[in-house]
């Protein structure tokens, strides 16, 4: 299968202070610090990590919404970070994003129809009439009513708004959609509806997803492959089944222990690993393995050397000197 999108060693450090002087003194937030990943066409990569570990930044980098410090993003066999703006505009048709906050992600002064038609307007797609028809088709496709076309976002619930966001993302028939925690702000019952909708759409339109979440349970049902991020780095990456059946990195194991199990008997035996301490500051991340300050398997080498992200089992990458489940 062909790779649709691939990130190669991508780096983004944000200067901390504002202004010319402070930003030089204050150091940098190492939001994304050398991340590589690939997603095959038609598949879903689940990207998981605690708040602030750089997931959204990585998403923005891959969509070229912010400038990367270094690295490459290969999309449809071209490095889009080096494309001139004009060519990038054409690429934008094929890559879209769905956001976490259903309230902030829709312009309150635009009707649902205008919101869904906007991508078509920007890319000069069709005439007024055909855009309108397409918008109504999309609105129905995501499970809303055609008469919602003329309404405004404040008239909808969170789940409905998220559907509007999905319709907007689909407007130009994209190949890739990055879903940045699309269900985190929703009630659990609504979460399942949106996840199912996304799944159906993926099958119908052969969409490729990068699905961001802050815990492993949400991505469980939608991912083909899962990558776990910690402080700007990927610490483990594997096929869905491999990762859930035998997590290698202690951080993944800890995250996994927080996921409730469907089998009540196993659920009773489930031992939660509570990580000590807070996530260290991304301004001054720990030396060596960034997880060593909170790791129960830590030895001297962990603070001294950075473990490479390498195959611990076939097709199962992890960055740890003392992996679990070998």
């Amino acid at each position: 299968m062909a790779m649709l999108i691939e990130a190669r060693d991508i780096v983004k450090h944000f200067p901390v202070g504002k202004g010319l002087i402070l930003s030089r003194l204050g150091g940098t937030v190492k939001a994304v610090d050398g991340v590589s990943l690939q997603v095959e066409e038609g598949k879903t990569l689940g990207l998981v990590g605690e708040s602030g570990c750089g997931k959204s930044t990585l998403a923005r980098l891959m969509l070229r919404l912010i400038k990367a410090d270094s690295g490459e993003v290969i999309f449809e066999d071209r490095d889009i970070l080096k494309l001139p703006n004009k060519d990038m505009q054409a690429v934008r048709r094929s890559m879209q994003i769905i956001f976490q906050d259903p309230y902030a992600s829709l312009n309150p002064r635009m009707s649902v129809g205008a919101i869904v038609m906007e991508p078509m307007v920007i890319h000069g797609e069709g005439d007024k009439e055909s855009r309108r028809n397409r918008a109504i088709e999309l609105i129905s496709l995501v499970g809303l009513q055609p008469e919602h076309f003329a309404r405004y976002p404040h008239e909808f619930s969170g789940g409905q708004r998220q559907r509007i966001g999905v319709a907007r993302a689909l407007a130009l028939n994209p190949r890739l959609i990055i879903c940045d925690e699309p269900v985190s702000a929703l009630d659990v019952s609504i979460q399942a509806q949106i996840l199912n909708l996304l799944k159906e759409l993926q099958e119908d339109f052969n969409l490729t997803y990068i699905f961001i979440a802050h815990d492993l349970s949400v991505v469980r049902h939608i991912s083909d492959e899962v990558a776990v991020m910690y402080l700007g780095k990927i610490v483990e990456r594997a096929e869905h089944d491999l990762l859930y059946s035998s997590p290698k990195h202690p951080y993944t194991v800890a995250l996994m222990s927080a996921v409730p199990l469907p089998d009540p008997e196993k659920e009773r035996e489930r031992k939660r690993i509570i990580l000590e301490g807070d996530v260290p500051s991304p301004i001054d991340p720990p030396s060596g393995c960034r997880f060593h300050t909170r790791c129960w398997k830590k030895r001297d080498i962990c603070a001294e050397q950075e473990p490479p992200l390498e195959d611990k089992a076939p097709g199962h990458l992890a960055a740890c000197f003392f992996p679990e489940n070998l």
Partner: peptide
């Protein structure tokens, strides 16, 4: 607001 970022993502 994310709708501004959404608009940028659309081009």
């Amino acid at each position: 607001n994310e709708y501004v970022e959404a608009a940028r993502a659309m081009g």
